[in-house]
């Protein structure tokens, strides 16, 4: 019994339960949905979101935010599209993705951690700059008509109708999750987000931790750009606009607190699946996809409000317990004294 309770207290478990509930709910309305292929298709569709959400969750964990990832993704998608037009190899794209992601991350990290500019504002600035670079790289035109089989990679199946892409992303997400929760350095991110002053006092460098978080976020955004290009085969100049908000929403759905220090990568990955499968579920429920945004919004607000209320009641319970203990103690105290006097 206590084991079950422990499992339920793991934060990403509740998001997983939520996902399962969504799948079952859709299945109840339209039982055609409950086939293996349909559910796996939801997973396969979430590749880009998962990469973005895993990357940004490092930053959110340290209590900052990074709204430049959508543009970074768009930039890298445009670049890999241009490479694909000339039959360049995907390895070149991945190397470029890592390099560009690192550069963006270092700039963001410097601005936020060294100069102390509020992260939302600084990354807003870099967001604009990178969006401008997308125009320059693609010369204001949509990048399409890729040569070779670059766009074919996205649908190649690894095993049991799971695509290679999702398999790789899944492994990456698990590695990132373990790094964050099981290793010493990984726990630095959570420590810095929970209490930067305290982390500094025990000898954790807040600057380097935030820097690492931004670099990781940039690199993941870059890689997701490559995946985006290969998946959609057509990159407009506004590709990735608004993806940062969806990635943040995925993190929130996965139980990561935007004030930092709470949550983990597994939750973010599950949140990304929820975000990207809503559209598919709507089709099966029989609603037009115009309901997509409204339902995502309702889901997001419901989850965070329930979470906040649950947290508040937990805090109040703890306070009440402490108060009861204290009154019991003082009562026992006075009783003992009274007894002594008599």
């Amino acid at each position: 019994m206590s084991k079950i309770k422990n499992i339920l207290q793991v934060r990403w478990m509740s998001s997983l339960l939520f996902l399962i509930a969504l799948i079952i709910l859709t299945g109840l309305i339209n039982s055609d949905f409950l086939t293996y292929d349909n559910i796996v298709a939801c997973f396969n569709a979430s590749v880009v979101f998962t990469l973005l959400a895993v990357g940004i969750s490092f930053v959110i964990m340290t209590g900052e935010i990074d709204v430049s990832i959508g543009s970074t993704m768009g930039l890298m998608a445009a670049i890999s599209g241009l490479i694909a037009q000339e039959k360049g190899s995907p390895v070149k794209m991945l190397i470029l993705a890592v390099v560009i992601g690192t550069v963006v991350g270092i700039i963001n990290g410097l601005g936020v951690a060294y100069f102390g500019v509020p992260s939302l504002i600084f990354t807003l600035g870099t967001c604009g700059v990178i969006r401008g670079l997308v125009y320059i790289v693609s010369q204001g035109k949509t990048v399409e008509n890729f040569a070779g089989d670059f766009t074919g990679y996205g649908t190649q199946v690894c095993f049991a109708s799971i695509t290679w892409y999702y398999a790789i992303v899944f492994v990456i997400a698990i590695i990132a999750h373990l790094l964050l929760t099981r290793t010493r350095r990984g726990k630095y991110f959570i420590a810095v987000g929970d209490n930067p002053g305290g982390a500094n006092l025990v000898g954790i460098s807040v600057f380097w931790t935030k820097m690492a978080a931004y670099v990781l976020s940039g690199v993941f955004a870059g890689i997701s750009g490559v995946a985006f290009a290969s998946k959609y085969g057509q990159i407009t100049i506004s590709a990735g606009n608004g993806y940062e908000m969806s990635a943040i929403a995925a993190c929130v759905l996965g139980g990561i607190s935007l004030s930092g220090g709470l949550g983990n990568i597994a939750g973010a990955a599950i949140g990304a699946i929820i975000m990207s499968s809503v559209t598919r579920m709507l089709v099966f429920i029989g609603l037009p996809s115009t309901y997509d945004d409204a339902i995502t919004g309702i889901m997001l607000i419901t989850i965070v409000v329930i979470d906040a209320l649950a947290q508040r009641s937990a805090i109040e319970n703890a306070r009440r317990k402490r108060l009861l203990m204290r009154t019991a103690l003082t009562k026992a105290d006075t009783d003992a004294k009274g007894g002594a006097e008599v």
Binding site: M245, I248, A249, V252, L258, T290, Y291, D292, D293, A294, I295, T296, G297, I298, M299, L300, I301, V304, V305
Partner: peptide, 12 residues
């Protein structure tokens, strides 16, 4: 978070 959710909800 709330206004992020709101932005999805109201545009929806």
């Amino acid at each position: 978070v709330v206004t992020l959710g709101g932005s999805f909800l109201y545009s929806g």
